[in-house]
Amino acid sequence: MRPVTFTAFGDPAGQGNLSRGRHGKSYHSNGAELEEWRTRVRNAAARATGHHALVVLEKKERTCAQCGTFRTKHGLFLGPVALDAVVAIARPPSVKRPYPTSRRHSDWDHHARALCDALTGLIYPDDSQVVDGHVRQLYIGHPSCPLPQPGALITVSEVS
Rank of each mutant, 00 (worst) to 15 (best):
A53F: 01
S144Y: 04
G75C: 05
L76E: 03
L119H: 10
T63P: 00
G79S: 13
R42P: 01
A65E: 10
A45C: 04
T120M: 11
F6V: 11
H23G: 05
I123Q: 12
V4R: 12
A152Y: 11
F9H: 13
P146S: 06
G31C: 00
V86C: 11
V131A: 15
P148G: 09
V135Y: 09
P98I: 07
A45L: 07
R97M: 10
S106W: 13
V41Q: 05
V131W: 02
L122K: 13
R20K: 11
E61Q: 15
T69V: 14
A46P: 00
H74W: 08
A118K: 03
A46G: 02
W108P: 06
D132S: 14
Y124V: 11
E61V: 01
G68D: 06
A44C: 07
A48T: 05
R113W: 10
H110R: 14
P98W: 04
G50I: 03
R42E: 10
S29Y: 05
R22K: 13
G31L: 06
Y124W: 11
A85P: 02
D132A: 15
I123N: 12
P92G: 01
E36L: 11
H52G: 08
G133H: 05
G14R: 11
L153D: 09
N43R: 15
R22H: 07
T49I: 04
R71L: 14
P3N: 12
G75M: 07
D132I: 08
G24E: 06
G16N: 01
V41G: 04
R20N: 03
V159Y: 14
E158H: 15
K59P: 03
G68H: 06
Y139V: 04
H23P: 00
D126T: 12
P125G: 13
V156C: 11
A65H: 13
R103M: 11
G16F: 03
R91C: 06
D117T: 13
K73D: 14
W108A: 15
L138I: 08
P150F: 02
Q15T: 00
H51E: 03
V87R: 06
I123R: 12
S157V: 04
A114W: 14
D127M: 12
M1W: 06
S106Q: 08
V95S: 06
R22I: 07
G21N: 09
T7R: 09
Q15P: 01
C67D: 12
